[in-house]
């Protein structure tokens, strides 16, 4: 279980990194935290000719308040997000979700840019990007451009980037909410989620005024359930709301079966989590 031969390039500027990727002619890969890439290399499931290591670019590691957004550099480690007071106060759902990312050793190395680019359908950070409606700044040969999270995740382990593109930073809009919840079930502590849901609401004049709902582990990409958000704003809030919400959520996904969970079981789990999440959300006084 050793990787195939590759050329290792540690550029010190983004321009050089993009150039190196462009020169690799589609055969290049970016090394950030390496927590998903290195196993793929060792299994020879990924066999890039060139590995462009971004770890020398400390300027890609930051968490800062930028107007109504929190901006996070692509090379920021999960552990820094986990311990950031700014994230805790401005992006509390993200703060809750990040604790479910794998294990300490992995959080010490893994980066947000890497996790988003890897686009695992059962990973927390891609789900958070969908939940918050994040926008990703990407550097390519033609300069910088911005991509909305909803356009970024194309399929399982597939994003919309070109081979020479590098995610540079991610802006997360700060959500106003009167209640939020993040729920996840994984087989063991630190495992990929069997199912997960994030919910937040703002109370309106009657019931829910605004809602945000995202799920993962139940489709090829994380999903934001906008029609469910809308429906939530249309129904009366009462004791039956958690059950009705669970029904709305489960009826809008059709998960696959794998060795860990049948489709029915995943759906059941998601429903239970949705119910629990809505109970939490509504228990918070507006």
């Amino acid at each position: 279980m050793k990787p195939a031969r590759f050329e290792y390039i540690p550029p010190t500027t983004l321009e050089a990194a993009v150039a190196a990727l462009a020169a690799a002619n589609g055969e290049g890969k970016i090394l950030a935290g390496g927590q998903s890439l290195l196993p793929l290399l060792n299994f020879r499931m990924a066999r890039p000719a060139v590995l462009v290591d971004l770890n020398g670019m400390k300027e890609l590691s930051f968490i800062e308040l930028r107007g109504e957004n929190v901006a996070i550099g692509a090379l920021t480690r999960h552990r820094e997000i986990e311990h950031s007071p700014l994230i805790a106060s401005r992006l509390p759902v993200m703060s809750a979700a990040i604790r479910h990312v794998a294990h300490l050793a992995i959080r010490n190395r893994g980066t947000i840019g890497g996790s988003l680019s890897h686009a695992d359908p059962a990973a927390e950070l891609p789900m958070m990007a969908m939940f918050y409606g994040a926008s990703l700044t990407v550097q390519g040969p033609a300069g910088r451009r911005t991509i909305a999270a909803k356009d970024f995740f194309v399929d399982a382990l597939t994003n919309c980037l070109e081979p020479e593109d590098i995610v540079v930073e991610i802006e997360f809009p700060i959500l106003q909410h009167d209640g939020w919840a993040f729920e996840e079930v994984a087989r063991r502590f630190g495992d990929f989620a069997l199912a997960s849901i994030a919910v937040s609401i703002r109370r309106g004049q009657f019931g829910v005024g605004e809602a945000r709902v995202a799920v993962m582990g139940v489709a090829d990409t994380p999903l934001r359930l906008e029609h469910v958000e809308q429906r939530l704003c249309e129904i009366a809030v009462d004791g039956r709301t958690p059950d009705r919400f669970a029904e709305m959520v489960t009826s809008s996904v059709s998960p696959n079966s794998d060795v860990h969970a049948s489709a029915e079981y995943r759906k059941h789990l998601l429903g239970e989590l949705a119910k629990r999440a809505m109970q939490t959300v509504l228990a918070v006084k507006g």
Binding site: R187, R188, F189, G190, D191, F192, V259, H260
Partner: peptide, 16 residues
Amino acid sequence: LLSASLVDYMIPSAPD
């Protein structure tokens, strides 16, 4: 074999 890695062949971890 469908459970050939430690992601798919689940062993109990300390909290279990």
